[in-house]
Design a protein around this nucleic acid. Structure first.
Lengths: 143, 143
DNA sequence: AGACAATAAGACATTTTATTCTTTATATGA
DNA sequence: TCATATAAAGAATAAAATGTCTTATTGTCT
C-alpha cells in the first residue's frame, strides 16, 4: 500500500504533533523510539518533510522537530504525496500506463470506488485530528 | 498495492483464460506480448502458478499454458495469495505488527471498510468472469 | 568565543524485488 | 528414433527500497 518511508513518516508526524502540543520540541531519538522506527532512517524522512515545510525543526541544544497550528492542518495525503509521490492517485492496479474510463483494465470498474475511498481517507484526516483522538488513549503507534 | 509479479500474474492468467477457451494452448512468448510483460519474468511467474495448480501446461511442440473449466473458477484472490502471500489480508496500513480492534493504529477504523472492499473485489472476481467481459471488447490488457 | 547538542547531508551497506540468461527436461511430430 | 519446440528450473544480474554510519553544519548556552 504505502512504502515503509511513508509508514514511518505518517507515524512520526502523528507523534510529533502529539508531543509538540505545548510548544515543546521532539528529538529524533525520541521520535524513533516512540514510533518503533530506525533512527537514521526516520531522521532522513523528517528532513525531507522539513524541506517540504510539513514540519519545523531547530538545531542545537533543546532543538528538535515541532509543529505550529498551521502544520497541524497537514493531511495524510500531503505526507503521502511528499514521500510516495502521487502514485496512489494515478496508478492502475494492474500497472497499465493508460488505464481510464475509456480504456480500462479488467478491474478498473471494481477498483474505482475503493480508490475513491482510499483517497478520501487520506485527504480528510489531518494530523491535528489525531491529537484529540490520542488523548483518549484510543490508538497506538507501536506494538 | 500489488507487486509487479502479481500484476503480471493476474494479466497473464486473464490472457490465458481468453486464449484457452477452445482448448488451445498459449506459449510464453505470446503471453508476454499479449500482456506487455518481460518474457522470462512472466515465464517464472507462470511456472509458480503452475506448481500451485492454478494453471496447466504441457511441454514440447504445440505446448503451452491452458486452463480447464475448474481453473476458470480461480479468483483473483487465489492468484494474489499465490504470488504476494496474504499480506493484503493481514497487514496494517501503517505497518504495525499487531493492529486490531483492541489495539488499533490511528487509521485502523477508517481503513477497515476499504480493506473489506478490496478483499471482496479480489474474492468475488474469478478468471472466468473476465472471459465474457472481454468478448465485448470492454477492457484491455495492454496500452 | 568555545563547547556542545542537535539536525542536515550524503556516502555506504544491505535487503528485497525485478529482470535476464543459461541450461535442462519433456513431449510432439516427422 | 531424432530433431525441435516448448516449458521448467535455477543461477546470475540489475535496480529499487530500506537501513546504517560518518561527517558537516548550525543554533544555543555558558
Amino acid at each position: 500500500m504505502f512504502s515503509k518511508t511513508c509508514e514511518y513518516g505518517i507515524k512520526a508526524m502523528i507523534f510529533v504533533a502529539q508531543k509538540s502540543k505545548e510548544g515543546s520540541r521532539v528529538g529524533i531519538k525520541e521520535i524513533a523510539k516512540g514510533t518503533d522506527a530506525p533512527e537514521h532512517f526516520v531522521a532522513k524522512i523528517m528532513q525531507e518533510l522539513g524541506r517540504k515545510k510539513l514540519v519545523h525543526s531547530v538545531k542545537g541544544p533543546n532543538g528538535g522537530f515541532y509543529m505550529d497550528k498551521f502544520d497541524l492542518q497537514t493531511s495524510l495525503a500531503d505526507i503521502v504525496r511528499a514521500l510516495d509521490g502521487n502514485s496512489i492517485y494515478s496508478d492502475c492496479v494492474l500497472g497499465l500506463k493508460t488505464c481510464n474510463e475509456k480504456k480500462p483494465c479488467p478491474v478498473h470498474d471494481q477498483y474505482r470506488d475503493i480508490k475513491k475511498n482510499l483517497i478520501k481517507m487520506i485527504e480528510e484526516n489531518t494530523i491535528g485530528d489525531f491529537n484529540t483522538k490520542l488523548d483518549s488513549g484510543k490508538f497506538f503507534l507501536v506494538n
